[in-house]
């Protein structure tokens, strides 16, 4: 039994990662938009599982709350709002092939830079010590002291998003 548990704690992360990639592929390849969104929802939930296996329980909860419980709702609402006919739906995703290829290439390069710049391996002793006190406190301890400026800027980012959404919908509605 103990062997089974240690097997899980060792390989669960990789199993989760594998399934996450499968559902992510499902998002891209399903023909039905709502099936895509359901696959995306599963992906988000699985990513929360990955965070959990990495001992980041607070981030896992946030992942569920914001991504699975918030952003996907927005996606579903969008699907319900925009009544697409089949041919329109096809054209929608095919117009900007070149631009999206460029964007994807840029994103891949950025990811590669981050990936090769990250020192992988066991975490330093200080980090594991913080995790033992619960990751919520660890996050709070650094976010509200060392990273105070990004935290305050985040509120401005949120403000811009809110104003932007209202301007887009309200001004259009008048004309």
């Amino acid at each position: 039994m103990e062997a089974l548990v240690s097997f899980f704690s060792n390989y669960m992360l990789y199993i989760l990662m594998g399934v996450t990639i499968l559902t992510a592929v499902g998002v891209v390849y399903s023909k039905n938009a709502v099936h895509s969104v359901v696959a995306l929802l599963l992906t988000m939930i699985l990513v929360a599982g990955i965070y959990l296996m990495l001992d980041a329980e607070f981030i896992a909860a946030v992942q569920l709350l914001v991504y699975a419980g918030g952003i996907i709702v927005l996606f579903v609402f969008m699907l319900l709002l925009v009544a697409l006919h089949k041919d329109e739906a096809l054209r929608l995703f095919n117009t900007y092939t070149l631009i999206s290829l460029g964007l994807v290439a840029f994103l891949v390069i950025m990811l590669a830079v981050v990936f090769f710049g990250t020192p992988f391996g066991p975490a330093p002793a200080t980090v594991t010590n913080i995790v033992k006190g619960g990751s919520t406190e660890a996050v709070a301890g650094t976010l509200y002291s060392a990273y105070i400026l990004p935290f305050e800027i985040a509120s401005i980012l949120l403000l811009v998003a809110m104003v932007g959404a209202i301007v887009l919908t309200k001004e259009r509605g008048k004309s």
């Binding site: 929802l41 569920l64 990751s135």
Partner: peptide, 18 residues
């Protein structure tokens, strides 16, 4: 008894909307 107890409940129940 999870450290993130209350947040866990909110996070899990936010998925119930689907």
């Amino acid at each position: 008894d999870l450290n993130i107890g209350l947040l866990y409940i909110l996070a899990i129940s936010s998925v119930g909307i689907y």
